[in-house]
């Protein structure tokens, strides 16, 4: 393997593998998000599960490493490619139909995705996982993910703007995935004349499902679909600051939070 990661194909393999890893992460993330559509409390349970635990932290570190590799190599490869292109540019270049828009603009799309990610981090990760780790308190409890979602996309005065930003973000992600998905397989050599069209087709379906899923959750929230005061305990009744995840109807006698709330 000596010198493998220095070779152009080696670097591309890093992009490919880290990309595939991120794709897998997106799939998990979507599954988690979709839970909120069915049950806010169930979603919050997931949030709690992925809160300040060693495995969640470890997972986050690995994920961050994946992102870092993907981003750093994206810039290294782009810089090299610009150099390889040479200093002179064509006066005009009409690429033939058939070259995907996304494939020519992966870096730009990637940067948009990253920007969206920063917004997303500020809105959720900082308020949830980080808050829990750091022990800071916010508007809602760090494990009350459903409440945060509801706030940003429904209750907040900037909700409409947030929804638009997120939809743009997903559109960029769709394009990025559309090329990235089959390209990743191509780069590690898992493709041939028969599989290129198949992979491209799978890529379309996959990225559409992922992005439409995310968008659906946002729009669902924007429409007020998330009932944060749902089947669990009633805050007015027991005065708890956080939800206790007890089965309805609420029983203040058994509610663990009722005590602290008093």
């Amino acid at each position: 393997m000596k010198g493998f990661f220095k070779s152009s194909i080696g670097k591309k393999v890093l992009m490919s593998v880290s990309g595939l890893f991120l794709i897998l992460f997106l799939l998990f993330h979507l599954c988690m998000n979709l839970v909120v559509v069915f049950s806010a409390s169930a979603y919050n349970e997931v949030c709690a599960f992925l809160g300040s635990n060693w495995y969640a932290v470890a997972g986050t570190m690995v994920l961050a490493a994946g992102f870092l590799v993907h981003i750093v190599y994206a810039f290294i490869l782009t810089a090299q490619n610009r150099k390889a292109r040479g200093t002179d540019r064509y006066d005009n270049q009409n690429l033939p139909a058939g070259v995907e828009f996304a494939s020519k603009n992966m870096l730009v799309l990637g940067v948009i995705v990253c920007c969206g990610l920063l917004v997303h981090f500020g809105q959720f990760w900082a308020k949830m996982m980080y808050a829990e780790l750091a022990g800071t308190e916010g508007q809602f409890a760090p494990t009350d993910g459903a409440a945060w979602i509801n706030w940003y996309f429904h209750d907040s005065p900037l909700a409409v703007a947030f929804v638009i930003v997120y939809l743009v973000w997903f559109a960029a992600l769709w394009l990025h995935l559309n090329h990235g998905f089959w390209s990743a397989f191509h780069t590690v050599g898992l493709s041939n004349n028969v599989w290129i069209p198949r992979l491209k087709c799978i890529a379309k379906w996959f990225s559409t499902i992922i992005c439409a899923g995310f968008a659906f959750v946002v729009i669902f929230a924007a429409c007020g679909g998330i009932n944060t005061k749902s089947d669990c305990c009633n805050k007015e009744k027991c005065g708890a600051k956080t939800e206790c995840h007890q089965e309805a109807p609420c029983n203040p006698q058994t509610c663990p939070n009722a005590e602290q709330g008093k």
Partner: peptide
């Protein structure tokens, strides 16, 4: 020379229609 990002422009402009599936084989 630069790194392949699988845009596929090469195969479209190749006068002999050499397919990018060969790039996949090279990667492999």
């Amino acid at each position: 020379f630069g790194n392949c990002t699988n845009t596929g422009a090469c195969e479209l402009e190749c006068p002999k229609s050499v397919s990018i599936s060969h790039i996949a084989r090279l990667n492999r």
